[in-house]
């Protein structure tokens, strides 16, 4: 009846996972060793995305913006719960009520700061000082919140990082970035990511990030130069390189050893998705945005694999309680600094 679901984005995928589905339907508790890697897929459809978008929009406006935390929760639930690792979906357990607290605190703080900026001379200094603390707080809080509210097969991600440690890293490496006029930024980025990942676990399996700042710097430099030379035609390959750097250096430590996540995203694929998305948007005067959203999402998730070595049947919840500060979460959004790993 309506167009977006007719063009089911699943059709754009390779058909590999469909065979895989039929093979794994009867996975039993035999602890069998798999031959193929674990696949991640995004099953969301443009139609459902549009439904969520429109409801979010209407309610947010009706409530003069107060619905925003719930809107964000709805969108996240859509993204998480339509993302499948093998046959099972991730589940997002965050709630609008939880985010609302952070939302109110953020805006109250922002409003107070802005008032000072307007009416006093020293307000602007305070604003930047506050920003220096708020940004790492937001990154840390958001990551912690998202992780501790995510489960797969009933097993939650956990996070055991310490904000003071994170803040220390932020200050030291932020300062280095500042005095090197941003050149050190690549190393700082890697360092922060490394901290967050190394304190994140799914079940008993700890993550880690082993990327080198130097490699990222080289990548950025080369990408920047090539994009300039090619008038940005190189952009898809740069996106691919950045994604692959982030994924291929992510390590999962499990009882049988350590393995890196695998990305098989190609520049050609990114190029194709970008071109088709662009054309879709132009031809439909922007109305195809739910479809392009879904296509972009799939481009990343569908090229992410977890090595077969990792036995996903043996995850253990351990003795944990659901927890996680939620103030940082809204702050990240207010300052547009979402630190997303990409699933």
């Amino acid at each position: 009846m309506y167009l977006p679901t007719l063009i089911n984005p699943i059709l754009f995928n390779n058909t590999k996972f469909i065979h895989m589905n039929s093979n794994t339907t009867f996975r039993e508790e035999t602890g069998s060793t798999r031959l193929s890697n674990h696949q991640i897929r995004f099953d969301g459809t443009a139609g459902r995305y549009f439904g969520i978008w429109i409801v979010n929009l209407v309610l947010t406006i009706l409530s003069l913006g107060l619905y925003y935390p719930w809107a964000k929760t709805n969108l996240r639930k859509f993204i998480w719960n339509e993302t499948r690792l093998n046959d099972d979906k991730f589940v997002y357990h965050g709630t609008g009520q939880e985010l609302f607290k952070g939302f109110i605190i953020t805006y109250a703080a922002l409003f107070a700061l802005m008032t000072l900026v307007y009416f006093t001379n020293w307000g602007i200094i305070l604003f930047y000082l506050a920003l220096i603390v708020i940004v790492p707080f937001a990154m840390f809080g958001s990551w912690k919140y998202k992780m501790t509210r995510t489960s797969w097969r009933g097993i939650f991600f956990t996070f055991d990082g310490d904000f003071q440690e994170f803040l220390k890293i932020w200050f030291v490496h932020g300062l280095l970035t500042l005095v090197t006029f941003g050149i050190y930024g690549a190393w700082a980025w890697v360092k922060l990511r490394q901290y967050l990942f190394a304190h994140t676990k799914i079940g008993q399996n700890r993550l880690d990030f082993v990327g080198e700042g130097g490699e990222l710097f080289g990548l950025n430099l080369l990408g920047g130069i090539l994009m300039m030379i090619t008038l940005y035609i190189y952009t898809p390959w740069f996106i691919k390189d950045r994604f692959n750097f982030a994924v291929n250096n992510t390590v999962i430590k499990h009882p049988n050893g350590e393995d890196r996540l695998i990305s098989n995203l190609t520049g050609g694929k990114v190029f194709e998705v970008m071109i088709v998305n662009f054309l879709l948007l132009v031809v439909t005067a922007g109305l195809a945005f739910p479809l392009t959203f879904v296509r972009s999402r799939q481009m990343f998730t569908d090229h992410l694999e977890i090595p077969a070595n990792v036995n996903l049947d043996l995850l253990e919840q351990g003795d944990i309680k659901q927890e996680g500060g939620n103030v940082g979460d809204e702050m990240v959004d207010a300052f547009d600094l979402d630190f997303d790993m990409g699933f």
Binding site: D43, G44, R48, I52, K77, F78, N81, E82, D88, K89, V91, H93, S151, R153, G154, I155, F156, Q317, I320, K321, Q322
Partner: peptide, 23 residues
């Protein structure tokens, strides 16, 4: 029902954290 959007799958959550799940 925590399945949220997917229509062909039903995910049921039960009990306190860490809760049990039936699919």
């Amino acid at each position: 029902d925590i399945g949220f959007t997917a229509s062909d799958t039903l995910q049921i959550k039960y009990g306190d954290f860490p809760h049990q799940t039936l699919i």
